[in-house]
């Protein structure tokens, strides 16, 4: 019996070793002559939440924006190294940015809904991907809004302008918009820094829900938020990863003195 139980435990442990979805290898990035990322190596597993913390200018936003190649919108950017998304290098010339971004969605610091109705905000992505049937679009809109924990608040006013929503609702709408095209990864760049504490809590709860189905990377200035929502945390400093560790370990007994100094507020 004990042997059987041990076997089961081993099987569960194996299941928990999720597949690596995003594998960053020796990633270097320059803005003109300035090197913003230095030899970044990070592995993000399926259905895990990874938090990126670090002081302003440490490269955390640059890093997260490189994961869906948004960083390349700046013409001065030069990149070496690889980011393997499901074993394919996203920087390879044959990898289309559009294809990447349908699978790696992003939510920004300030909610940025389109100046359209709530419904249209969510239906926009699926429409671009060729979905025309009203019934199917309705289903996608409802499911996305439900998954973003917004449905109950907006179901009776789907045709109203999204700008009429509160900041927290707008941010959840942007999350619903991201979910509508069924990505595998959701990148969040300081998603709650413009929100009040209650809306922040709702987004944090949502992150916990979403990680059942999605791999999430979240950049945050709020270290308690990183501690609350993430499974693993990377501490960036001057463009380098100082420490990448289990969140609990990183916040209770970090390996690197610089991590300790940063999270205890001795600099940054």
């Amino acid at each position: 019996m004990i042997q059987l139980m041990e076997k089961e435990d081993a099987a569960t442990a194996a299941d928990q070793r999720n597949e690596i979805v995003l594998d960053t290898r020796e990633l270097n990035l320059w803005y003109g002559p300035e090197q913003a990322l230095k030899n970044i190596a990070l592995q993000m597993s399926e259905k895990q939440v990874t938090a990126i913390i670090g002081p302003s200018g440490c490269g955390k936003s640059t890093y997260i924006k490189s994961l869906n190649r948004m960083v390349e919108m700046n013409p001065l950017v030069r990149i070496t190294g690889q980011v393997m998304f499901k074993k394919r290098n996203i920087f390879h010339k044959n990898y289309s940015v559009e294809e990447l971004r349908t699978q790696v969605g992003m939510v920004f610091q300030k909610p940025n809904p389109f100046p359209k109705s709530i419904y249209e905000n969510v239906a926009y992505g699926p429409r671009i991907h060729g979905i025309r049937k009203k019934k199917l679009l309705d289903e996608i809109v409802e499911k996305s809004l439900r998954d973003a924990a917004l449905w109950d608040e907006v179901k009776d006013r789907l045709n109203e302008n999204a700008y009429g929503l509160s900041g927290g609702q707008q941010q959840r709408l942007c999350i619903a918009r991201t979910l509508s095209i069924e990505p595998e990864v959701i990148l969040m760049d300081e998603p709650t820094s413009a929100l009040d504490p209650i809306s922040t809590l709702k987004i944090e709860e949502l992150v916990q829900e979403l990680k059942q189905d999605y791999t999430i990377v979240i950049v945050t200035h709020n270290m308690q938020q990183a501690a609350r929502v993430s499974d693993q945390t990377a501490f960036f400093l001057n463009g380098e990863v100082v420490e990448f560790n289990d969140t609990v370990t990183l916040f209770s007994n970090p390996n690197d003195q610089r991590t300790e100094d940063y999270i205890t507020g001795r600099f940054g």
């Binding site: 270290m223 501690a227 916040f251 209770s252 007994n253």
Partner: peptide, 9 residues
């Protein structure tokens, strides 16, 4: 203070 790391310990 929401202490962490050695402060918390």
């Amino acid at each position: 203070q929401q202490p962490v790391a050695k402060d918390l310990r």
